[in-house]
């Protein structure tokens, strides 16, 4: 029987955007899209796509659906999971959905999963690189009433359940999770694969399936935020570095050590 996996994926500003290009419009409390740097799929979500593909590589019969909530999707970015090998792309695409908070995002995802499911596994990245909260996937498990394992670094099918390794501060836990379950995948899983040419060609022919809020039976009033964003700003750094210069680089190393000793730091 086919194992249906849904991977949650978010479109985010490229975290590799150079700091000089990272700008905020303080009048709207939002990040200005950097010039010439297109958005990407959150890198941690690609770890989750990779985890699903590893189950397939290990011989499991899986169908991998990528699900995203947002607006102004950039298809070149959002099709990357398809190019890596995912089967379907489902977008909940409606005005303002790129600005809702985690609680509202969970509501939309739960409704989309209700409509497009049932799924045997729900995978998400450990957090998104824009708001860095790590709330959505954990919250979704609560709202759907499903078991949750966070920070999964390794997974394999074991009969009807999933055998997992979960990262903890000084080691790992060996965990067995039933299906359906919600898992967050961490970057310790390893680098996501690069799409190959065949994958890119296949992805280019696939069309995303698109839901609006109305399709999911939701309205704006369901999406009111729990937290009010009052201010978003780039903190000023007033640190002044003291550069140590010697006669050559080796001498700089010596002088650095002496300077730290003088400052009683070592």
């Amino acid at each position: 029987m086919t194992l249906r996996i849904v991977v949650l994926a978010k479109q985010v500003p490229d975290p590799e955007t150079p700091p000089s290009q990272f700008k905020i419009d303080e009048s709207t409390n939002s990040v200005l899209p950097p010039n010439g740097v297109p958005p990407v799929v959150n890198g941690f979500d690609l770890n989750a796509v990779e985890a699903a593909l590893q189950l397939r590589d290990a011989g499991a019969d899986v169908e991998i659906t990528v699900l995203s909530v947002g607006s102004e999707f950039v298809m070149d970015a959002m099709k990357k999971p398809l190019a890596m090998g995912a089967d379907r792309l489902v977008l909940v695409d409606d005005e303002g959905l790129d600005r809702i908070d985690a609680a509202a995002t969970v509501k939309v995802l739960a409704a989309a999963i209700e409509k497009d499911g049932p799924f045997d596994l729900i995978l998400g990245g450990r957090q998104a690189s824009d708001w860095d909260q790590a709330h959505v996937t954990l919250g979704l498990a609560e709202v759907l009433g499903l078991p949750l394992v966070s920070l999964v670094q390794k997974l394999e099918l074991d009969g009807d359940s999933i055998a997992l390794r979960r990262v903890i501060p000084d080691g790992y836990q060996v965990v067995s999770a039933p299906t359906p379950s919600v898992l967050t995948i961490t970057n310790e899983l390893g680098e996501p694969r690069y799409p190959n040419l065949r994958g890119i060609m296949q992805a280019s022919r696939k069309k995303p399936e698109i839901f609006s809020l109305v399709d999911l039976g939701l309205s704006d009033s369901d999406l009111s935020p729990k937290l009010e964003l009052k201010r978003l700003y780039v903190p000023e750094s007033n640190r002044q570095v003291e550069l140590i210069e010697g006669d050559d680089e080796a001498d700089s190393g010596v002088k650095l050590a002496l300077r730290l000793r003088k400052e009683k730091l070592i």
């Binding site: 750094s237 640190r239 570095v241 210069e245 080796a250 190393g253 650095l256 070592i266």
Partner: peptide, 23 residues
């Protein structure tokens, strides 16, 4: 260097051995 209090602009392969020896 925007975050550091002390810094050396240089190749770590040349800076680090003498830094380590001095420490």
């Amino acid at each position: 260097f925007k975050e550091a209090r002390f810094g050396v602009v240089g190749d770590w392969e040349k800076v680090l051995p003498s830094f380590l020896a001095t420490v």
